[in-house]
């Protein structure tokens, strides 16, 4: 009758985090295993790697100013391109049954190819570098967006389309004002799936073939047996993942507010 607030939204829900950190610190100190440095060592190594620069650059080091933007730039470029291509093709496929019959099986086949296999392909096609990585991300993550958009565009409420036609909206207007908004929740579901996939592909592409970026830094730390550096880089990647996810959810909440409201009343 009076639903209690979900526990995870109450203030103070974060208490297990410091507890876990403290437990981790104690356990690693007790074990003394060099492969598992205590979190304090990891954090001080992270500070050293990225936050020990001059004050006029906000203490950011050269590594923080080159590797992180390089990685994030490639990730966002590949993901944004995939979003553009995937949504456009997906809506075309969703609205045209004929096109969908011809290309549908090919799309599903392409989606079934494990994305890491694109890596040797683009490495052989292009040289190592940003172009190769952006292509790997683009071709690796476009499929969930494409398939979801097609699904969304296919299931537009016919009554909405008929209403739009009855009011004399042109084909273009119908596409932009009715089909696209109706498909948007599905498009966002696809975009969200592919964002985490893009992060994975960014890391693996930098681990396998790169001369800069966070993944390269990770491999470099591993090769020099700098385990605090390895774990520190992983923490950084986790924080990046958190940040992307939070930013995406905030954007989705703003853009799809009508969808949630409509679904709550029905």
């Amino acid at each position: 009758m009076n639903p209690a607030k979900p526990p995870s939204k109450r203030p103070g829900w974060l208490w297990p985090v410091p507890v876990a950190l403290a437990g981790w610190e104690l356990a690693t100190r007790a074990a003394g295993d060099l492969s598992f440095p205590p979190p304090t060592t990891i954090f001080s190594r992270m500070r050293e790697m990225w936050l020990s620069g001059p004050a006029d650059r906000l203490w950011l080091t050269d590594a923080a100013l080159t590797d992180i933007p390089a990685s994030v730039g490639r990730l966002l470029a590949g993901w944004a391109l995939a979003g553009l291509v995937g949504t456009t093709l997906g809506i075309a496929l969703g609205r045209s049954p004929l096109l969908s019959r011809f290309l549908g099986p090919l799309v599903h086949f392409a989606r079934a190819v494990p994305p890491p296999l694109l890596l040797p392909f683009f490495m052989a096609l292009f040289a190592i570098g940003a172009r190769m990585q952006i292509n790997v991300i683009l071709f690796g993550v476009v499929w969930p967006i494409l398939i979801n958009s097609a699904e969304g565009a296919r299931h537009v409420d016919p009554l909405h389309l008929e209403t739009a036609a009855a009011f004399g909206l042109s084909r273009g207007q119908r596409l932009l004002r009715v089909v696209l908004p109706s498909a948007l929740p599905k498009v966002f579901a696809g975009l969200r799936l592919s964002l985490s996939l893009a992060l994975i592909l960014m890391v693996i592409s930098e681990l396998v073939g790169s001369v800069d970026g966070i993944g390269f830094q990770l491999l470099d730390a591993q090769r020099s047996y700098d385990l605090p550096g390895v774990w520190g880089t992983i923490v950084l990647l986790g924080l990046l993942g958190c940040a992307f996810n939070a930013a995406f959810l905030a954007a989705e909440r703003r853009i799809l507010s009508w969808h949630r409201a409509a679904n709550q009343t029905t």
Binding site: W15, P16, A20, L207, Q222, T233, G241
Partner: peptide, 19 residues
Amino acid sequence: FGPVFEFLRPIPSVALIPP
């Protein structure tokens, strides 16, 4: 465990390959 998971989950799994 929820909050701890929320911090572990976004770590791209392939980043764990080097360690």
